[in-house]
Design a protein around this nucleic acid. Structure first.
Length: 462
RNA sequence: GGUGAGAUGGCAGAAUGGUUAUGCGUGGGCCUGCAAAGCCUAUUUAUAAGGGUUCAAUUCCCUUUCUCACCUCCA
């Protein structure tokens, strides 16, 4: 029996914290839908998808809320450029988001709240902040006063005094201190909403505090997002929420490392953004998933042209072993049962790795070791039927947790394939190679390719 | 300048106070109608440099060098 004792590193306390064993609620900062998603987004989303799948496999009840920031300068700019509305822009890219991530076999979040659907909640929240005297009104908008929240900087480990010396932010006469941030901006051009303080639109950070507290219990388990959100976004979320509610927003702040391109930051200005749809045209979604979990989630990934090729090789290895097991017909039922010990060892390593701050890399390597052993036994033809059945079910569990998808082959299809392979085998034994190749072609037309080994033939679905 | 994270074999990338990570690549072998792959085996002093603690350090501590991230919107 495997004990579920999952620890996740918390950015705030800088320690690993235990997760609740029964119920885990996650608020994940989603995307701003002003353009297509890139591989950086996919990493964060996939990491949390695998985490969710893993927890669910351990009978933990998971709830994920993932927002869409559908009002933002970039969306507005795009809508102006296109002479359309922010809703047209955001709806289009939300559609694209789902198109891409459905292909990646990412489970849907339980909710996808949008900022524009929560304007009233946002206004109410800001009102409370004003009443608590931590926000103030200027002629440009409503601002949060970071000096009123004396723990400001605790997440990103920033010292406010030093921060205020910073030269990166120009001192703005509108605000009390340069790092005060807008809760509500007064504007006269659409999109605008009425508020008690004047027409305008919400600031960037307020929606997440509002929606996470609306849909999840106080001090929910995990608040997640990319590393680059730590400051200022998550820092500000904490400030807003905690100065209003006097209770911690989330128990664990979990941050996923960024993807770099040739050791530099991926950014629009450098023109090196790699869009997900472009990768999806070239690579199997399983390969993209494998790429994303092949480095520990907390570390940056340095992407280069080989990255996906390497993930592809790894995936092919796993897939091949799966099909070898599926193709196996010559069971050696005189042999000892080997699989129980193998699976037992693998299971322990696999769970230990994931339980210890979600080390997918180590979990993956334990699976690859299992694959290696199975390949060895397959090659010497020493697996029993029980071994093969158990191995296949281990593969399926593994696929389910990591979200890998393999086309299903029906029972009837399998029978047909096996009978054709048998037919071809006899033809080959009689050196009727032309006819044998015709059978192979017939299978090829069914999208089945064959691999002849010393003592067996393996089929594989393309 | 501040804060944080790093520096592991040819490459990617884990872990660890004492034991082979794993994958790729490379050499050799087996197998082989074709095709493709697989299996076996070998492979390099692998832990940035210097010092300290210790019976023992790649792992802990100190110093140095270097890299990256955040400090402006960013997953």
């Amino acid at each position: 029996m495997i004990d579920l004792d999952i620890k996740i590193y918390d950015t705030l306390s800088q320690k690993k914290q235990f997760l609740n064993k029964n119920r885990v609620s996650i608020y994940l900062c989603g995307i701003t839908p002003y353009e297509d998603s890139h591989i950086g987004h996919s990493r964060t989303i996939i990491v949390f998808d695998v985490l969710r799948r893993y927890l669910e496999s351990q009978n933990v009840e998971v709830k994920i809320v993932q927002n869409f920031t559908d009002v933002d300068d970039k969306i507005i700019q795009r809508s102006i450029d296109e002479n359309s509305s922010i809703y047209e822009v955001s709806n289009r890219f939300i559609k694209h988001y789902h198109r891409d991530f459905d292909l990646l076999n990412v489970k849907h979040a339980h909710m996808y709240p949008k900022a524009t659907d929560h304007i009233n909640d946002i206004i109410n929240f800001i009102t409370q902040l004003i009443n608590k005297n931590v926000a103030y009104i200027t002629k440009h908008g409503v601002y949060f006063s970071i000096l009123k929240f004396n723990e400001y900087g605790k997440l990103s480990k920033k010292n406010i005094d030093k921060l205020l010396f910073g030269t990166r932010v120009s001192v703005d006469y509108k605000k009390s201190t340069p790092y005060d941030f807008a809760l509500w901006k007064f504007v006269t051009t659409p999109p605008i909403w009425n508020s008690p303080w004047g027409k305008g639109r919400p600031g960037w950070h307020i929606e997440c505090s509002v929606m996470s507290s609306k849909y999840l219990q106080p001090n929910f388990e995990i608040h997640g997002g990319g590393r680059d959100l730590i400051f200022p976004h998550h820092e500000n979320e904490i400030a807003q929420y905690e100065s209003c509610m006097n209770t911690p927003l989330a128990k664990i702040w979990m941050h996923v490392g960024v993807i770099k391109i040739n050791n530099t930051k991926m950014s629009k200005s450098l023109n090196n953004v790699i869009f997900l749809h472009a990768i999806l045209e070239k690579y199997d979604p399983n390969i993209i998933r494998l790429f994303c979990i092949s480095t520990h989630y907390s570390k940056p990934i340095n992407y280069n042209t080989n990255s996906f090729e390497e993930a592809k090789i790894k995936w092919d290895k796993i897939k091949l072993c799966y099909y070898e097991l599926l193709s196996e017909q010559n069971f050696n039922d005189c042999a000892d049962v080997k699989i129980d010990k193998l699976i037992h060892d693998y299971d322990r390593k696999f769970h230990d790795s994931l339980n210890n701050n979600f080390n997918t890399v180590l979990a993956l390597s334990s699976f690859l070791s299992l694959v290696k052993q199975l390949n060895f036994y397959l090659n010497e033809n020493s697996l029993t039927k029980y071994d093969v059945t158990e191995s296949l079910s281990t593969f399926q569990k593994f696929f389910k947790i990591f979200g890998f998808k393999i086309p299903i082959t029906t029972y009837d299809a399998k029978n047909l394939i096996n009978s054709l392979i048998k037919k071809r085998k006899i033809l080959r034994e009689h050196k009727k190679y032309y006819e044998a190749d015709q059978v192979r072609q017939q299978l090829e037309n069914m999208n089945i390719s064959l691999l002849d080994y010393q003592n067996r033939t393996v089929w594989m679905k393309k």
